[in-house]
Design a protein around this nucleic acid. Structure first.
Lengths: 103, 103
DNA sequence: CTGAAACTTAAGTCGCTACTTGACTTTGTT
DNA sequence: AACAAAGTCAAGTAGCGACTTAAGTTTCAG
């Protein structure tokens, strides 16, 4: 799932879509790659629930799906807070040792 | 930088380190790969400022570096809020159209 | 109906990346 | 001193992943 965000072109797609929906051709033009390559990127982004798309007529319109972004954010926050809480506990232990230096 | 988080073994290292520091050998044992491979992962994690490490004697001890986590979190938050603000503006436009249906 | 536009799918190429093995350096133990 | 432990470095290999080209498919315009 972070794998989807690891590619610069896919991140560019995300950034583009935060400014509004876009078609496959538009995204391809902006990235400077083939339409086929863009479709493959979109497949990855959809599998990670970072992008949704809907086809009407012959044109597929893509937009952000907040679910994936929230998941990624949640994982990072979990790691960071776990680390911070550990530091808190460590600080408490050190404080105890200061107050009561006897082993 | 997201590339560092894209690998499952590297994420496992992060998760392990949130529970306290560890040596290279300990991390290698937990991952089930060679020490050499683990060193390579650590190199990537350090380049992204996700992990710091210090060598004392012949043993290197690793711990979380919050800088990278914060950067990743910030990028995700930027994208998410940009998207939410866009929805807000869109909502405002639709409200205007309701009030003033004349083209 | 003909043809172009927008996308889809399949196959192939090429570079990158994770991993290993093996040789080496440094540090600690007996 | 001699050996073991912990890590580092350098190649080498296997597989994945991003991209392309080429051949469909579907939809819309004239």
């Amino acid at each position: 799932m972070f794998h989807a965000l690891a590619d610069a072109n896919r991140r560019a797609v995300i950034e583009r879509l935060t400014r509004g929906p876009a078609t496959v051709s538009e995204l391809a033009a902006q990235l400077g790659v083939t339409v086929a390559a863009t479709v493959q990127h979109l497949q990855v982004l959809q599998d990670s629930e970072l992008v949704r798309s809907e086809k009407v007529g012959r044109v597929r319109t893509c937009q952000i799906d907040p679910a994936g972004l929230r998941n990624a954010e949640a994982w990072l926050r979990r790691q960071r807070t776990a680390w911070e809480h550990r530091l808190d506990r460590l600080g408490a232990v050190l404080d105890d040792q200061k107050k009561e230096p006897g082993s």
